[in-house]
Design a protein around this nucleic acid. Structure first.
Lengths: 186, 186
DNA sequence: CTGATCTTTGAGCGTTTACTCTAATTTGAA
DNA sequence: TTCAAATTAGAGTAAACGCTCAAAGATCAG
């Protein structure tokens, strides 16, 4: 894994894994398909990755890192900023965001590694939304703000999810509608 | 499929299929597991069902029929009624509702039969919510009411989905929060 | 009881899965 | 140029998958 050729192969494998998981989901993605799309034979795959799961985890980590960008700004962003960032992620990284939705949705199947990572990510994300919610509506109680924040995050996921079934679905419109409703209350 | 024994076996197979899909999802449910849980051998399964997919489709149809009860009342129910009915479905039919969420969410995988059925169901459901929305807020334009109705349905699914990862998750609270937000706007 | 029909048995089919192994080739620092 | 280390090729493994089938057993109308 030190030579240039190996690193290039690794990238090709990750590209293939990303698009295949986006297209077919976790269980629908096979080693054979990855190798074919990457132009590689199984021996090469297993020279660079210990298992199929390791390649998938790598791609999922990418997706999780991409969904909550600019962590330096944490503590200053508004709910609107957060939702806008999510919409941008969905629109500008179609493959990666499909990976994210598929995993977040299926509960990562039978992989404890992925499940744990996703649960922790969800908690952190709710916390970030919750902080923004409290900043925007200081009159809300602690627990109420947290629950409303979680409602918003989960509802956003439900909306993003629909794009997997209907590629022409207008995610941005619905996400903004949701945000407006939440803002109208507070 | 006419003798009493066959009908009982059929029920046992459907019970097993329902709980296994609820627990492990579509791809995680195998013929072997179904047969073991139903106390049946593969030959018996295939005497009653043409394929694994047929058994699953039967269970999914159950779930779809259960999520929108009392179609006779269509045209009179309020948004609150519809959301309350959904919450009741989620709470009173845990296994069936998990099947519903898993299928609706994953896009039914690679089964065109299931995908088509789910798409049609979603459209009908949105139409029903949309009608209730127009009744409640006549001042909204046609398309606006429809889009808001779809936002609500999808957000509800996003919330219900989280219960698959966290069984203790308070679906009812979050669903009601969503409804209040939507109501506060109109 | 008879006998046609339905049900169950359980070994086993062919395919696909993730993954391994050895030998050949390529790489790039010294 | 040398040569150990990294990378590839590609046949091959064992296990799991959905599913089949012939034979034995259970059911129930006539």
């Amino acid at each position: 894994m030190r030579y240039k050729a190996g690193l290039e192969t690794r990238e090709r494998i990750l590209d293939a894994t990303r698009s295949l998981v986006a297209e077919n989901g976790l269980d629908g993605t096979t080693i054979k398909a990855i190798c074919e799309q990457a132009g590689v034979l199984p021996g090469s795959f297993y020279n660079l990755f210990a298992s199929k799961e390791q390649a998938i985890v790598t791609v999922v980590r990418e997706a999780i890192d991409a969904v909550d960008p600019d962590p330096a700004h944490q503590g200053t962003d508004s709910l609107h900023d957060l939702v806008a960032a999510y919409i941008r992620f969905l629109e500008e990284s179609p493959a990666l965001s499909r990976v994210y939705i598929r995993i977040g949705v299926s509960g990562a199947g039978s992989s404890p590694e992925l499940s744990g990572r996703m649960v922790r990510h969800h908690e952190a994300r709710v916390a970030r939304f919750s902080a923004a919610m409290k900043r925007q509506s200081p009159e809300l109680s602690e627990t109420l703000a947290e629950r409303r924040a979680e409602t918003l995050v989960l509802a956003l996921n439900g909306i993003a999810l629909h794009r997997i079934i209907d590629p022409d679905f207008d995610v941005a419109w619905h996400a903004r509608a949701l945000l407006e409703d939440a803002a109208a209350v507070s």
